[in-house]
C-alpha cells in the first residue's frame, strides 16, 4: 500500500486527527461516499452519520454530527461539528438522549418547529449508539 491519503479531522474544540490513511468513508449529503488516493477535488456537505477510515489494515469508526468535507491534492479535510471515536462514546448518555428525543417526538406534532430539532437529536443519538457498537480503534 504505497499510496495514502492524508486525513485531517477538525472539530471546533480540537484537531482530532492528522494522519496518513488508506481509505475513508463518510456520510455525504447525497449519500455515503468513499475516498481513496487520487480522488478528484471534491467539496461536500456531511450528514449526521458514521465515518470510518482504514489505516494499516485496521478500520476505525467515528460518530459524526454533520459538517463539511474537502478533498484536495491527496488531503482530505473534514470539518465536523462534533466527532467521537467509537470507544469515546458515552453509551449511557446516548441512550438517555435517544429516550429524551423519542419522548419529545411523541409529544409534539410534526409541524412543530421543535420536532425537527428532536428528530435531529434522535439521529445523533442513534448514530452514536450504532458506532459505539463497533470495535474499538486499538
Amino acid at each position: 500500500m504505497a499510496e495514502k491519503i492524508r486525513l485531517k479531522l477538525v472539530t471546533p474544540s480540537r484537531l482530532l486527527l492528522d494522519e496518513e490513511v488508506d481509505e475513508v468513508t463518510a456520510p455525504g449529503a447525497l449519500g455515503e461516499f468513499g475516498v481513496l488516493p487520487k480522488h478528484i477535488s471534491f467539496l461536500t456537505l456531511l450528514e449526521v452519520g458514521e465515518m470510518s477510515y482504514k489505516q494499516g489494515g485496521e478500520r476505525h469508526h467515528l460518530a459524526l454530527s454533520g459538517g463539511y468535507a474537502e478533498v484536495l491534492d491527496e488531503v482530505m479535510t473534514v470539518l465536523a461539528g462534533a466527532a467521537e471515536y467509537s470507544d469515546e462514546i458515552d453509551i449511557e448518555r446516548a441512550r438517555a438522549a435517544r429516550e429524551r428525543a423519542e419522548k419529545r417526538m411523541a409529544e409534539l406534532s410534526q409541524e412543530d418547529k421543535e420536532f425537527a430539532a428532536a428528530e435531529a437529536a434522535l439521529r445523533r443519538a442513534l448514530v452514536r449508539l450504532q458506532v459505539a457498537g463497533k470495535e474499538a480503534r486499538k
Binding site: G28, A29, L30, I40, S41, F42, L43, T44, L45, Y68, L72
Partner: peptide, 16 residues
C-alpha cells in the same frame, strides 16, 4: 481549484 460540489455551491454556502 476545480472542485466537484455536492450538493451545489449555493446549498453549501447557505449551510456554511
Amino acid at each position: 481549484t476545480e472542485y466537484l460540489f455536492e450538493p451545489g455551491v449555493e446549498a453549501l454556502l447557505s449551510s456554511l
